[in-house]
Design a protein around this nucleic acid. Structure first.
Length: 762
DNA sequence: CTCTCCCT
């Protein structure tokens, strides 16, 4: 058992820690043993998640313990059953080897061609020593013989770097590029770099990547890593994706909105291409589809893709022992704090990673750790809190990568950014609160929410895995075994809990007219679809029959959400395109302002300089102008609490929107000069539904729906009372908060949307 | 009196 902290004011949390209680399933260690197991997929689950030992202690301290030898064992043991139905025993053995291909350091300097070839030769030896290499021929064979294949393998197992190369070597890029889609930009970049090095040609030749603002790929690229968003844009100009011979949809288990749309799109495209070939078109080649997932929910993908064969590639990770609490914890922040100090005092060196839900919680925890660290006996080294969340500036984020000074220990306080997006080195201990913030969408009333909710089992396993990347680790779950058992297996796919306007406009623009009959893997609710269709109709993107209008066609061409696209089109008529583009760019990042809560006063004061009485849209514009007048000076940004990374992103978006505007025949330089009221009226063309009127009691009530909304404290109009307001976004958290708020005159509404407000305000 | 995260 853990010893308690000698601190009178702290409680002690009981976890299990008795080596003899650890039961490691014998059939999880090797593939051959597991293949003789006759049990079904429930056995894999059992190994991973079922308690193995129970000890009584003082009546109430029931100790639970279990070991997961990481998801690789799950993979290995279930490999047998799943592949058993489809692959021969020999194939099974070949597929079930373990592998090691954790990321190696990349070469930064530009090497010569010879050096690159030499390097590639060296890497070749490494590649061929990877256990996935023994499955190479089977993978090639299956892909050649089948239109769709599902491959399950651990993240970082090497499947994403090796399989495209195997297919390339097998000649599958002869009639088109092999593409690999990723949900994240950094992943696409890093994978392409690594694979270019292994292939032995400069990045951008045989191997390239394509992400927004950065395309290293060329016509000749044989393997192309890209974000799923880029592939969706490419669909608009190449509806049959004829430049691709193989499309690999990676990280399918994440079920992002974009991958879900791509599932249906590529399935349809594959069929269309085959139909054309069957009708004698010699210039068209069939499309191969490969779905890659890191979790075991492969049956669903297989069913969707005509019962596609599932192949399992086991990965290797160090074992992570899971420790659940004995009792439910009423306050997980407090429990996490106590657990962190228990680890710090009792456990071997290695950093701690705590999953929390948001910035506020993280900053509170940071203060608490510093406070309680003063109670530590002098023999114990320092415990250094390191917050990490997306809104931080890059320089702050870099700190988590610096090693802790000798004799000290870092405790990383992270949102779920550390679950998939950022990999932090030297983590041996994970503390999982079991909660995260999750975006929700109530289609009935069309309101988005952002609430703390329990995570899914797959999230819990993903979090656990973060402790076993470099050495065996421990995962402290601040919830009971029973609570874990009651979690959902997987998160609800994003497509079922978000606004679908953008997705629907894309579908319509690629010729899919009846979106209600689109082949969704998981169908969004009817009311969600209808609400989005109605909004697109209100924006004049669709006509009475739901067909795309000329306006809708133009809107779909812009890489922005439909309401912004409408604003852009409107800005031409109102002669304020320059300002519209700038404000849309500014609204396209989370926020250009950033400050830790400790410096909030200072930050607010700095922001006063840019504040417009008319609200956030013009405040943002003022800030951009000030930023440009100092040429984006880093020190200026720091002094004014401006997130320079986000600001640079704003400039990139602006540049791109200017190009898109020119391409659609607009003049992006058209300006309204000092008459900025025009821009706000222009925004109403896209946001007339996002408006609220001041009530006699001083609150705001939304015009559509009559909802009481509160101005978010980050807004320049917070606490101000104006006749009417327009907002960029409404999200329910503790209240219905509106963000990106500007003041209006209510008579502008009837001009902006006469169909909706004409009678009421005439 | 406060904003999980990703993408074009």
């Amino acid at each position: 058992m853990f010893s308690s902290i000698q601190s009178a004011k702290r409680k002690v949390i009981t976890f299990g820690d008795d080596g003899e209680q650890v039961s490691r399933p014998t059939n999880s260690s090797t593939a051959t043993e597991s293949s003789s197991s006759s049990s079904s997929s429930s056995s894999a689950k059992k190994h991973n998640d079922t308690q193995n030992g129970t000890t009584k202690h003082n009546g109430s301290n029931i100790v639970q313990d279990k070991t997961s030898s990481s998801s690789s064992s799950t993979t290995a043991s279930s490999t047998s059953e799943e592949t058993g139905q489809r692959l021969s025993k020999k194939q099974k053995r070949q597929l079930q080897h373990q592998q090691d291909s954790r990321p190696k350091k990349l070469i930064n300097k530009e090497p010569t061609t010879e050096a690159m070839t030499q390097k590639a030769k060296e890497l070749k030896k490494h590649r061929n020593s990877l256990p996935i290499y023994t499955a190479r021929d089977i993978i090639i064979k299956e892909v050649k013989e089948n239109a769709c294949v599902v491959i399950v393998g651990e993240t970082g197992s090497g499947k994403t770097t090796q399989i495209p190369q195997y297919l390339l070597e097998a000649g599958l890029a002869a009639h088109g590029t092999i593409s690999v889609t990723q949900p994240r930009r950094v992943a696409a970049i890093n994978l392409a770099r690594r694979v270019a090095e292994e292939v032995g040609t400069p990045l951008g030749q045989k191997v390239g990547y394509s992400i927004r603002f950065d395309d290293t790929s060329s016509k000749d690229s044989l393997i192309k890593y890209m974000t799923d968003g880029i592939m969706l844009r490419e669909l608009l100009s190449d509806r049959l994706l004829l430049r691709y011979s193989v499309i690999i949809l990676d990280e399918a288990h994440e079920r992002t909105l974009r991958t879900d749309i791509l599932f249906g799109m590529v399935k349809g495209i594959q069929k269309q291409r085959q139909d054309l070939i069957d009708r004698g078109r010699k210039d068209i080649q069939p499309l191969k589809i490969i779905i890659m997932s890191a979790t075991l929910d492969a049956e669903k993908f297989s069913e969707y893709f005509y019962g596609a064969k599932i192949m399992y590639i086991s990965g290797r990770q160090f074992p992570v022992k899971i420790l659940n609490t004995v009792e439910p914890q009423s306050d997980y922040v407090d429990s996490a704090l106590v657990t962190a100090f228990q680890i710090h005092q009792d456990e071997a060196p290695g950093d701690i990673l705590i999953f929390l839900t948001g910035q506020e919680e993280i900053e509170n925890m940071e203060k608490l750790i510093e406070e309680y660290a003063t109670d530590l006996p002098p023999t114990v080294g320092k415990l250094i809190p390191c917050p990490i969340f997306a809104a931080q500036d890059t320089s702050t984020q870099q700190k988590i990568f610096e090693p802790a000074p000798h004799g000290t220990r870092k405790v990383i306080l992270a949102t779920n950014i550390a679950e998939t997006s950022i990999t932090i080195p030297n983590i041996r201990y994970v503390i999982d609160t079991g909660c995260h913030k999750s975006r929700g969408y109530n289609a009935k009333i069309g309101i988005e929410s952002l609430l703390v909710e329990p995570i899914s089992k797959s999230s819990a396993r993903q979090r656990m895995g973060r402790a076993g990347r470099e050495a065996p680790g421990l995962c402290f779950r601040l919830y009971t075994e029973d609570s874990f058992d009651q979690l959902e297996e997987d998160a609800i796919p994003e497509i079922k809990r978000c606004n679908l306007e953008s997705a629907i406009l894309s579908l319509k623009a690629t010729g899919i007219d009846d979106v209600t009959r689109f082949d969704f893997m998981d169908r969004p609710s009817k009311s969600g679809l209808l609400r989005s269709l109605e909004h697109l109709y209100a924006l004049e993107a669709l006509d009475d029959e739901g067909k795309l209008t000329d306006i809708g066609t133009k809107m779909a061409a812009f890489p922005v959400d439909p309401p912004y696209a409408k604003v852009l089109l409107q800005s031409e008529k109102m002669e304020c395109t320059k300002e519209a583009i700038e404000i849309i760019s500014l609204l396209s990042v989370d926020t250009i302002f950033s400050a830790p809560s400790s410096k909030r006063e200072e930050a607010n004061e700095a922001r006063q300089k840019f504040t417009s009485l008319d609200g956030d849209h013009l405040t943002l514009l003022n800030t951009l102008r000030a930023y440009e007048s100092v040429k984006g000076d880093r020190d200026w940004c720091r002094e004014n609490f401006i997130n320079s990374r986000h600001m640079r992103h704003v400039l990139d978006v602006r540049k791109q929107l200017i190009q898109f505007a020119e391409r659609s025949g607009m003049d992006p330089k058209k300006t309204c000069g000092h008459d900025l009221e025009i821009v706000l009226k222009c925004f109403l063309a896209g946001f007339f539904q996002n408006t609220a009127l001041l009530q006699p009691d001083g609150t705001y009530k939304s015009i559509l729906g009559g909802l009481t909304v509160s101005v978010h404290p980050s807004s320049s109009l917070f606490g101000k009372k104006r006749e009417a307001i327009m907002y960029d976004e409404l999200v329910f958290t503790t209240k219905h908060f509106v963000r990106g708020v500007s003041a209006l005159e209510s008579n502008w509404l009837s001009q902006a949307a006469p169909k909706y407000f004409g009678q009421r305000h005439a």
